[in-house]
Amino acid sequence: MLKLEAVNAGYGRAQVLRDVSFEAQAGEITCLLGRNGAGKTTTMKAIMGVLPLMSGAVRLGKTVLSDLPAHVVPRHGVGYVPQGRRLFGDLTVGQNLEVGRFSQCESESTLEEILQLFPRLRERYAQRANTLSGGEQQMLAMGRALSLRPSVVLLDEPTEGLQPSMIAAIRDVTETLRDQGVAVVLVEQRVEAILALADRAALLENGRMRGVVSGEALRDDPTILARHLGV
């Protein structure tokens, strides 16, 4: 489905990713594991095309995403939930969702689905995004990404700083997406979430791949997580 092939990328002259390769399959949750600064967020930006590659390729099915201008990537069904949410704070909830729908055509049905998935967003529809609580903002960030009917969703620390009930809600949505056949790429720091959700895990260290392990292997051998998260 989504495939990174020997991706090299970085900021200016500072190279962060070195020959990163992994695959994310439809209907699976692929966790990207690594310590702070390992290149997890950089990998996500490289997939989205907002960070140009130095070399290598990002493929989605037969399409080479890395050959496309960044603003065309979401049109191929890649939804991004960035770290820290990064909503359009001065825009309303409705306008944030509308921006999400720019990249797909069948708008109204999707909007209704999103509002059913996150009923709180319906209540807050005309409110400005930066007036929402942390949990509501995270729902909006996910709703915005789901608005484009993605076949791949990139979730960068979606439960960071949230209360337990919100964490459970976000986890439910993540599992629903997997069950609907979406390829989910998840960056997560919380061990119990990784163990519960990961179908496979790609291990990153200082911008290099240190292998891919299955979810079962993670659950059987807790030392893998300890080594790669520094916990």
Partner: peptide
Amino acid sequence: RATEQDREMALAFGI
């Protein structure tokens, strides 16, 4: 307005 608030996110959402 979306571009004004966050250029990178605007790009990531197809603007």
